[in-house]
Structure formats: C-alpha cells, structure tokens
C-alpha cells in the first residue's frame, strides 16, 4: 500500500476549489494585462487595462472564501501577526503562510492597477478622478505591472504547490500541480478577458488575436502537463474511477477539447468568408460595416468562455476532491 494512503484528508472542499478557481482567474487576467502593457503596442493598451479590470473583482471573491473555510474564522489574522506576542508571522517554507502574504500583496498591486485602469476607461464612474489614470502610466505603471505580474504568477501556481507539500495521495505524488494550475489559469483568463473584450468591441478588439493565441498556447501546455501528470501517477490514477473521473473528463472536454474545436470551426468559417470577401471594396477595412467579424474570428462567445471556465473549475475540483475522498476518513 502507498504510504500516502495512511494519511488523513484536509477537509478542503468546494470553498477551496472555488478559491483556486477565482485566484487563478485573477492572477491570469493580471498577467495578461501586464504582458499587453509591457510588451504590446499602444493599440493594445485598452485591452491591457481590461486585464486589470477583470483581475480585482475576481480577487475580491478570494479572502471571504478562505476565511469562511477556516474553522476559527475570527482568528484569520494569526496568518499575518503572531497571536501571542507582537511581531510578523511569516514562514517562507510554509506554502499557506507565504501564500497568504502573496495574496495580500498581490491584492495591493491588483487594486492600484484596477484604479489606474478604471480611471482611463470609458466606464470610469463620475466620482473617480480622471487624473488617477497616472497610476497606470509611464515608468511607474510599468514597474507596477512587472511587480504585480510576478505576484500574479505566484498566486496562479502556489495553490498547486500547496497541495503537493502534503503527504496526500495524488497531490504529494507529483510536482506538477503548480505548473498545471498556472497553465489552466492562463487559458481560462485569456478566454475571460477575450470574452469581455469581444463584448465591448471597438478599442478592445486589436488584442483579440493575441489573447486567442495565448489561450491556445496555455491550453496546449495544460493538456501536455495533464497527460504527464496522469502518466506520472501510474496506477494511482484509479482514484478517478467514479464521480471525480467525470469531473476530470469534463475538465478535459469542456476546458480543452471543446474550445479548441470551436475555434477551429470558427477559424475555418472565417477563412471561407474572408476568401469570399477578398477583392471587395475597401469597406472591409472597417470590420463592423462589412458585416465581417471585427476581431477577425477571434471573438470569444459566451459559450466559448463558459466552456473554458467550467473546465477550469472542474479541473481543480477533480484534483482536490478525488484526493480528499481517499485514505482514512
């Protein structure tokens, strides 16, 4: 019998799964915003700000989920301060300790970037001064983006590391979970940011092709890592015989296969339409007028984003809950 089967489950259930999901979305959206900000052109700045605008709302869901999951929620501050004497509580070798701090600091980056982005956005509420847009501009904006992206990558991946730094079946039997969650977070975030950009259209459209490619690259990496993960586990994969296997299957079908198929179909349709439309008058330059899709077939539909997000949630649920069900109850 594997040594990991003599251990007890953590009772980490749906609250934690949903936290992993939102944490990944927030982190991934921030990274996409920062990449467009740091390395994209001027025409991609609106979409970059969209990444920041998506990041903070997703992040706000996280602390309540984590605190409510504690058995003594009123003591959550023990994560940051010593409870019996003055001083800062920080253990870099404890994934939960360093993760709590990273979440707090990433929250600060995400908040400042959000305010900067909202101040420069057409959706700026009237009470928000327009001059706060400086928060996202110039060298300060770039430093903020770079620092925030570092924390964001940490948030995307540490959850998987936290699961691995245990003695539990599946989790502790592979070092790949952090990598898997990072790839999955990026794919889901690219779909989400792409969806919002598609909906808003106009200035947000130029980044759509890149977001689509980013989503596919991340999804491909996720698929490869998932296959490697299953191969790594060997006979332990039997844990997914049953309801959690259905979740894992959903993660692959909804999150990876269906969106790729959907994109292929749409790209083909787009190419055919493009051939038909070629040679027509200059109206094609303005996509919306010619009836041509403005994002060049890279728009993300509600169905598309729904599938990817459901897949991302299912992946985390399949990995967390399958292990929780093993060992002595």
């Amino acid at each position: 019998m594997r040594d990991v089967l003599f251990t007890a489950p953590a009772h980490w259930h749906w609250l934690i799964v949903v936290y992993f999901f939102f944490g990944g979305l927030s982190a991934g959206s921030y990274v996409l915003g920062a990449l467009l900000h740091l390395f994209g052109g001027a025409q991609e700045r609106p979409a970059s700000r969209l990444g920041y605008l998506v990041s903070l709302p997703a992040l706000l869901a996280c602390p309540p989920l984590l605190i409510v999951d504690l058995d003594r929620p009123e003591r959550f501050w023990h994560l940051f301060l010593w409870s019996q004497r003055p001083g800062v509580m920080f253990k870099w070798w404890s994934p939960m300790s360093i993760g709590s701090w990273a979440l707090l600091l990433f929250g600060a980056f995400s908040f400042v970037s959000f305010v900067g982005a909202l101040s420069a956005d057409p959706w700026r509420p009237s009470w928000l001064p327009e001059r706060l847009a400086v928060l996202g501009r110039g060298i300060w904006g770039k430093v903020l983006a770079a620092g925030g992206a570092g924390f964001a990558f940490f948030i995307a991946g540490y959850t998987g590391v936290l699961l691995s730094v245990t003695n539990r079946p599946l989790w502790a039997e592979t070092p790949l979970l952090g990598l898997l969650f990072t790839a999955s977070a990026m794919a889901a975030s690219a779909a989400l940011v792409g969806f919002v950009a598609s909906r808003r259209g106009g200035a947000f459209v130029p980044a759509l092709p890149w977001l689509s490619r980013m989503e596919h690259a991340a999804a491909l990496l996720e698929l490869l890592v998932l296959l490697l993960f299953l191969a790594w586990l060997g006979p332990a994969v039997a844990a997914w015989r049953g309801p959690y296997g259905v979740l894992l299957g959903m993660a692959v079908l909804l999150g990876l296969v269906a969106p790729l198929a959907l994109t292929l179909v749409r790209a083909r349709g787009h190419a055919a339409r493009g051939r038909a439309a070629r040679g027509e008058a200059s109206g094609a330059a303005r996509g919306e007028m010619s009836g041509e899709a403005p994002g060049g077939g890279h728009e993300v539909t509600a169905l598309g984003v729904g599938l990817v997000l459901a897949g991302s949630l299912a992946l985390r649920a399949a990995i967390v809950l399958a292990s929780e069900a093993l060992g002595h109850a």
Binding site: D3, L176, M214
Partner: peptide, 30 residues
C-alpha cells in the same frame, strides 16, 4: 514516512517553469 517539504522545491520549480514559458511566449508573440 516523509516530510511534506520534500516536494516544496521541485514543485515550485515546475510552477516557475510554467510561468516562465507562458510569460516568454506572451512576450515573444507580442
């Protein structure tokens, strides 16, 4: 029986590798 921390570094490196690959891919493609 083993310590959980045996997985800390290899798991962190794998995650950092994923972040580097995706970050660089984003940079280069842009």
């Amino acid at each position: 029986p083993k310590l959980p921390s045996r997985n800390l570094w290899r798991s962190s490196f794998a995650a950092a590798f994923g972040a580097a690959v995706l970050g660089l891919w984003g940079l280069v493609s842009l």
